[in-house]
Design a protein around this nucleic acid. Sequence first.
DNA 1: ATAATGAATGAATAGGCATTCATTTTATGG
DNA 2: CCATAAAATGAATGCCTATTCATTCATTAT
Lengths: 209, 209
Amino acid sequence: MPHAVVRVNRRTLSRERRRQQLIEATIKCISKKGLSSVTLSDVAREAGLSQGLVNLHFNSKENLLAETLKSLAEDYDAQFMAIMQRTPDDPAGTLLALMEMDLKPPICDRSKLAVWFAFWGEVKAVPTYQKICAARDQKYEEILLELVAALVREGSYPNVDVETVAEALSSLTDGMWLSCLVNPKTFSRTKALAGVKSYLRAVFPDHYA
Amino acid sequence: MPHAVVRVNRRTLSRERRRQQLIEATIKCISKKGLSSVTLSDVAREAGLSQGLVNLHFNSKENLLAETLKSLAEDYDAQFMAIMQRTPDDPAGTLLALMEMDLKPPICDRSKLAVWFAFWGEVKAVPTYQKICAARDQKYEEILLELVAALVREGSYPNVDVETVAEALSSLTDGMWLSCLVNPKTFSRTKALAGVKSYLRAVFPDHYA
DNA sequence: ATAATGAATGAATAGGCATTCATTTTATGG
DNA sequence: CCATAAAATGAATGCCTATTCATTCATTAT
């Protein structure tokens, strides 16, 4: 039955595209109006589609929001892994590239950050969000840990605690995201990146001098 | 008219207390249910008071939320300034004390952080929140800047850019707050503090060795 | 003791929202 | 082409919630 297969493929494809379109509309709406006042009408209007469509594709608002967060996390992961694969044998370069990724568009973009923070703000109250965010954080953390460990193996850093530095590095970028969101006027990507670099230089002089 | 004065004082006092009670209830509710699903009934129930009271004291839900954020910011400011005044002539000690404050209860407490993040998540959408948060950030930033500048004057740190380091320090604690919120199991105050200290040691060896 | 004033109550109201569903439109397979 | 099934529509439904307000309660001043 070749026809059946083709049919299923086409349908799931278009289905997937509609879902993505709705998710993108949701992101825009959250960024514009805030998570607590976004309505399904807003999302439908933003997408140029009808009221009922969201429930047709996502069954509920709750589910739409969870899928939106998943989509954000997958986007981040994709970019992250792309950089990881670029220079597999250069931990110092990879680490710097990852930090730069975090501090440049499309990751470090006020609209997208607003959506991340919106979900973080509900993490304690909504277990679904907590799981998705925790999973992302832990994966990120483990990879940073390995990179930092590699640097420690390569250079001579007797006083560096690997776990502490990895944790500090990810906190540093997270905190800069908050600056970008709250103080867009004052915030400067260049200064932020300079801050990260100065930290790397201070901790790993052999690699980043 | 001494009577009139007494009357006014008593009334405003009790009024202020009721408002504070409602604000505390709001904080609890946001932490438990998330900003986007808190209702005025929730707040009233949490405070053990009646439905209509919130509007009597705050006129609108919107205003209650803004006042709640202001109250959070004032709390933070009070603790912050208390530490500043403790050791006015010891910038190194003051800086460390401020970082420690950020990473210990009652500041670094998951329930309170959940509320901060809830508001940060709406900062881009709600100008009122933006102003309050930006004001807090800028004040904090300026003070850190002065402390870091003092350290640079005292020691010999030719390569330290004051602004960059101050920005990095505040980002560091902000990012650790996110870890505390999202990964309470993994997060450890001790490790977080160790991260900050290792940064201070790396940048200001003369002071924190 | 009593009048007067403000605080607190909680039932009533009105508006907004997620969800449902009967109907129409569009795409696919024979 | 037609028949079929899925996709999309948007009006209708019913719940939930902020806000209002007539009423009750508590405090204060005379």
